[in-house]
Nucleic acid binder design. Structure first.
Lengths: 170, 170
DNA sequence: GTGTCAATTGACACAGTGTAAAGCTACTCT
DNA sequence: AGAGTAGCTTTACACTGTGTCAATTGACAC
């Protein structure tokens, strides 16, 4: 908090006056970030895709490009989530939006008749959501050294292979 | 540390005498846990499986049953990892063992000629390792409410579908 | 009887979060 | 012009948790 105040050129107490607590400051930062980055519009572009498989591909691309932008604050939120209820709630809200998107994609695949037959709609959505988690991005790019472009490409292949019927490539 | 000391019926300082720091205590706890649970022997059983696909299935089952046993300490380690280098190193060591196993499985699939053709050996190992992360288990069981048995069954299907050539079910 | 080992008690340093009180400056409203 | 207020400052303090230090005790071995 001291560092934040210094960086902002105000006193430590002024930060508390504005945000109440460390947790609230982080949540506010995350919300502001989404706003500045135009999250809604960017999601709108993916919503344009009509076919399930196409939507899956578009979404993975959008998400794979979005994660690096929010990773800093996301990391802080994930850590604070363990001990702070308000942060946990805020985080869960944000992740619920992603789950919603996954659910929507799976529904479309199902409607197209291209959902792989072993999954129920809920299970497929849960799995897709889990596969696209920020932790997994962290694991592949930061720990295994994948460049972001590879993350997107391979994740597209993987999710397609996993959820789209008869798309097992060669 | 105070709680640990109380539970052990000794003074707080005695804990520091034995383990030096909170981080070292956690690492020692994890090592001791593996020993008590007979990690090596249990891994030995999975090593008996010869075919790649069979080994994959056996390993996912072993791992899916092992995670709930170590989840408590694993969670503590994952949290402490963020701020403590020694914990980070210990954790990375443990995860390297899992990655090794994934690599081994992928190698066998490749040798059998049953590895799905879109993956390189390294990429497949990285992906499998990421899919089997404790975070993903946490996400599916604790957050999405899957029973552990379903985790194992669906993870077996998912990894098979993703990595084994021509095994896309119906 | 001496040495040593494993504890104990009690005090303290330090970092980080959060609270409280008093005061200062600049702006707005009437 | 004067009153009120918004936004900020400084200073001090409470509380938690980790880790350190020093002096002391009890038991056991040689």
């Amino acid at each position: 908090m001291r560092d934040v105040a210094e960086a902002a050129g105000i006193s430590r107490q002024a930060v508390y006056d504005h945000f109440g607590s460390r947790a609230e400051l982080m949540v506010a930062t995350a919300r502001y970030g989404d706003e500045v980055r135009g999250l809604d519009e960017r999601l709108g572009r993916y919503r344009a895709a009509t076919g399930g498989a196409e939507r899956l591909e578009t979404f993975v691309e959008f998400w794979g490009n979005y994660i690096p932008e929010i990773y800093g604050i996301a990391r802080a939120l994930m850590a604070a989530r363990e001990t702070d209820e308000a942060v946990a709630a805020a985080w869960d809200d944000r992740m619920a939006v992603v789950h919603e998107a996954c659910s929507n994609i799976v529904d479309r695949l199902h409607r197209d008749g291209t959902l792989a037959p072993e999954w129920s709609l809920e299970e497929a959505a849960d799995l897709l959501w889990t596969m696209l988690s920020i932790r997994n991005w962290e694991s592949l790019t930061l720990e295994r050294g994948w460049p972001p472009s590879r993350y997107v490409a391979r994740m597209q292949e993987l999710t397609k292979r996993a959820f789209v019927r008869g798309s097992e490539g060669a």
